[in-house]
Computed example of a mutant assay.
Amino acid sequence: MAVVSNYPKLSADWLRHEKDARLHRKQVTILAATGNLATGAVLGQILAGAATSAAKAGGNTGGGSLTLDATTPKLVGVKAGVYKVRAIGLAANGGIFSVHDPDEIYIGNYTIGGPDFANQIKFAMADSGTDFAVGDGFDITVAAGSGKWAYYDPTAVNGCAVPRGILLDARDVSGGADVAGVVVTGEAEIVAIGLAWGAAVDDADKKSAGVALLAKLGFQTRQLS
């Protein structure tokens, strides 16, 4: 007959060794209504807030406009800060624009009249009146997020698409109030089968992808399944 254990899960079930707990543990605020979290819950951090757009400082020669997508202005991988959309190629009633993220990394071009730009942010542009000049453009500002923590979710557009740490001790955050907790942020040896995942990580492939991202934080995995 199988033996069923009712003992609560322990951190030792997933955390086997830490290089230096003083350096790689962090007290955090877990977002209200995240759920009843077990030790070993893989968490992300809400780093990106609302997105807004405006013409670049000093205004534009051209009379066109930029409109953020009404449903999904932010996409997976979005960063807090200012995205710069600048004209690099001229055309009558159009133009080509380069897009750089808040770290000044080039992430693609957009052509007026073409498909929506959809890398980290999603927008479309239209020409009206005077044509754009080289250097014209728009700034898209993504506000900083709350900094609170919630389950890692590879589809999230608030920063939680990247895991940032693993919950050390279980916390019930199913109510309407935020709850304090402690996460291990890296440089530790873990057992992947002992980790706890949110509803969005619902198959082995997604768990493996999450474990691969944890490795970038310095987590070494002893057991994958």
Rank of each mutant, 00 (worst) to 15 (best):
A2L: 11
P8G: 08
K19N: 11
K19V: 15
A21F: 11
L23I: 07
V28N: 01
G35K: 02
N36F: 01
L37N: 01
G40V: 01
V42R: 00
G49C: 13
G49E: 04
G49S: 13
G58M: 08
G59R: 10
G59E: 10
N60K: 08
L66T: 01
T67K: 13
T67S: 15
T67R: 13
A70Y: 02
T71A: 14
L75K: 01
K79V: 01
A80R: 04
A80H: 03
R86D: 09
G89Q: 12
G89L: 08
L90H: 05
A92I: 13
G94C: 15
F97W: 06
F97P: 00
H100S: 10
P102D: 07
I105Q: 12
Y106H: 06
G108N: 05
Y110H: 14
Y110E: 03
T111A: 14
G113N: 10
G113P: 05
G113W: 07
G114F: 03
P115W: 02
P115N: 05
D116H: 04
F117E: 00
D127T: 15
G129R: 08
G129P: 04
T130A: 14
D131Y: 06
F132C: 06
A133T: 14
G135L: 15
F138R: 01
K148R: 10
A150E: 02
A150I: 03
D153N: 15
P154K: 12
A156N: 08
V157P: 00
C160T: 13
G165E: 00
I166G: 00
G176S: 15
A177L: 14
V179E: 13
V179H: 06
V182W: 08
V183E: 02
V184T: 09
A188N: 08
A188L: 11
E189D: 14
E189I: 14
I193H: 09
L195I: 11
L195V: 09
A196D: 12
A199D: 14
A200T: 07
A200F: 01
V201M: 06
A204W: 03
K207N: 06
A212V: 05
T221C: 14
R222F: 07
Q223S: 12
Q223L: 13
Q223A: 13
